[in-house]
Design a protein around this nucleic acid. Structure first.
Lengths: 156, 156
DNA sequence: CATGAAATAATAATTTC
DNA sequence: GAAATTATTATTTCATG
């Protein structure tokens, strides 16, 4: 594993704070807020992108507007050997599967899934998950209501 | 609960697709890609924001760069009565807690937490979670490796 | 990291379909 | 009513100090 040095100073952290809050903030506004020249900010943002500190810019779309109201977490027990990620990679290919985490404990994955409704979830499990060879069992947790869903990291 | 009509046409869905992929795509580029006038796109984007279809624009920051390498999911059993969300709201206030979901089954929440390391997780549980009155028990699942973490919805 | 000039984009008003 | 055009203002970008 490559040890990477990020070396972020206070200005970098402030840029991250602003961009995490609103990724569409234009460069001139960031510069104004930080009391610096726009060109200096632009250069830093590009460096942050190059250094893989700023990964991507997403618009968050209301799942309800796309009729994807149902959210579930599924624990998947697998036969993957330690270090192997075959099943994890297959799970990651499913568009409805938003997250795949390799978890400690009894060899398995935790996945986060969005479907239109319980029918969509059943379909996914019957038609897609069941096709993956090596899945031993699944345990599904259904979300009734999401109180917070936000991916903003704590910036020191 | 207000029943909202979103009424998205193909152009709207394409805009969402582009913005979900890269929220910093400028208006002129979206217009070019869709073969429409910039003003028409701008108006649609504003309407999508007003209608709460486009919720917000986030920059995804590399957790490693901010020394937040540890990810955990914690199941929290609570004494919240049905419909009550006191504990959920308290959990949502904790900055390290990125998601709080009210889950079906045995009265509780599933939360997603990012900390620097296992020490940070222990601190959070000892100093913050333990202060919340009404939490009966917790069960923690530790993520060894994230294979996919992406919040792009499936757009029809 | 700042400056300044040229290229490009955003925005608002107006017109057209 | 939605989209295109136009004109004005603002921002990005890049060479240079």
């Amino acid at each position: 594993m490559d040890k990477v040095e990020y070396n972020l100073d206070q200005v970098d952290l402030q840029i991250l704070r602003i961009m995490q809050q609103n990724a569409r903030t234009n460069n001139a506004d960031v510069a104004r807020e930080l009391g610096m020249a726009p060109s200096a900010i632009l250069e830093r943002v590009k460096k942050l992108e190059q250094k893989n500190v700023l990964l991507e810019y997403n618009a968050r779309v209301n799942p309800e507007a796309l009729d994807q109201k149902m959210l579930s977490f599924i624990f998947i027990k697998s036969h993957d050997n330690i270090g192997d990620q075959r099943i994890g990679l297959l799970l990651a290919e499913i568009p409805e599967v938003l997250e795949v985490h390799d978890i400690a404990g009894d060899d398995g994955y935790l996945i986060k899934v969005r479907t239109s409704d319980s029918g969509g979830l059943v379909d996914l499990m019957r038609n897609t998950l069941s096709q993956i060879d090596g899945i031993v069992s699944t345990r599904t947790t259904i979300v009734l209501e999401t109180v917070k869903e936000d991916h903003k990291l704590v910036i020191p």
